[in-house]
Simulated scan of single mutants.
Amino acid sequence: MSIRLDLLTEATKRGPFVRVLVIEVKGSAPREPGAEMLVWADQTQGTIGGGTLEYEAIARARGLRAPKVERFALGPDMGQCCGGAVTLAFEPVHAETLAKIDGPAFARPFGGAPDMPLAVRQALAEARRGALTAPVLREGWLIEPIAPPPDPLWIWGAGHVGRALVNVLSPLPDWAISWADTGAERFPDTLPPNVTPLIAENPADLVSLAPPQARHLIVTFSHALDLELCHHILGRGFAGCGLIGSQTKWSRFQRRLTELGHSSAQISRIACPIGDPLLGKAPQAIAISVAAALLRERNIRAGTAAKEGCTG
């Protein structure tokens, strides 16, 4: 996992905080390297796995003035059943510090010599090649790869399924969400910071604003609008597209899209129906299964392997 400067910068608007970062895991542990939690005097954001480890990390973070690294044996030290060990970095964060970060990785001393060692320069070279995918501690220096911008995700429709999708996906840092519908009254009164509402009498007119690398989820109230969106998105280019509906609806759409001039290979790139039928048809069930598929795809592209873990 990589450092998200945009999210950390946004967090500094609430004042300075201590960032608690998982930098190494041995054996079974609640979270993977790169997982983080932000700790203020009166609140927290994010999680490093919950349970006793997180409780102790919050207590250590509050009042901290200087960076430090600490290793926790989850069984002997925390009384947790995971049996592994976790190394955490505790780092006070200020907006001024974040503003100075530039390049493919963020390297700074964590108890090491102020002059950058050769091992750190080698880690920075790895970052430039894209070979550094998680934080590492080398000779008293902490090095983290800088995360690329979040993937653009366009959600078409602010009905029950659209709202469920936004509720599930917006807390994750992986996507910048554009949410389109026909009127302001269709949206909730407040939206998460990574969600941009887009309003048009005919939302299909907005497709030209979406970047070709965007992913689309079409969940509007109208079959006619759904079809028009599919037509425009196929002509625009996209990284992925999912359409809510039945097999009957999709068969009809395939015929109509063929008549509109799209090839079978193009049309087959649209996934319909979305969601895992084994989880049910409730909006929240659809949202959970769609989010799981998006996360699985993103992790495969990033080369992130699942690790054994525990939560308490």
Results as ranks from 00 to 15, higher is better:
residue 308 E to F: 10
residue 283 P to V: 10
residue 72 F to N: 05
residue 254 Q to W: 02
residue 118 L to H: 05
residue 286 I to G: 03
residue 79 G to R: 13
residue 255 R to V: 12
residue 83 G to D: 08
residue 52 T to L: 13
residue 258 T to S: 14
residue 86 V to Q: 09
residue 103 G to I: 12
residue 69 V to H: 07
residue 193 P to I: 01
residue 194 N to T: 01
residue 22 V to F: 06
residue 256 R to K: 09
residue 148 P to H: 14
residue 311 T to M: 12
residue 309 G to P: 09
residue 58 I to Y: 03
residue 140 G to D: 04
residue 224 A to K: 08
residue 251 S to F: 04
residue 258 T to I: 02
residue 263 S to P: 09
residue 95 A to I: 06
residue 94 H to C: 08
residue 8 L to F: 09
residue 174 D to R: 08
residue 310 C to S: 14
residue 156 W to A: 00
residue 173 P to H: 03
residue 24 E to W: 10
residue 258 T to H: 06
residue 51 G to S: 11
residue 207 V to M: 00
residue 241 C to V: 13
residue 91 E to Y: 06
residue 131 A to M: 14
residue 148 P to I: 02
residue 74 L to F: 09
residue 285 A to I: 01
residue 225 L to P: 00
residue 198 L to N: 02
residue 193 P to T: 01
residue 233 I to F: 03
residue 15 G to K: 12
residue 310 C to I: 13
residue 47 T to R: 09
residue 206 L to F: 00
residue 304 T to V: 15
residue 148 P to T: 10
residue 270 I to S: 00
residue 17 F to N: 05
residue 308 E to W: 09
residue 160 H to S: 08
residue 205 D to R: 10
residue 227 L to T: 06
residue 264 S to D: 13
residue 291 A to Y: 04
residue 141 W to T: 05
residue 302 A to D: 14
residue 240 G to Y: 07
residue 207 V to N: 02
residue 247 Q to F: 03
residue 144 E to P: 05
residue 128 R to Q: 14
residue 33 P to L: 11
residue 132 L to T: 05
residue 241 C to P: 03
residue 242 G to E: 13
residue 242 G to H: 06
residue 163 R to I: 10
residue 284 Q to T: 13
residue 66 A to C: 08
residue 238 F to C: 07
residue 216 H to C: 05
residue 286 I to A: 08
residue 312 G to R: 14
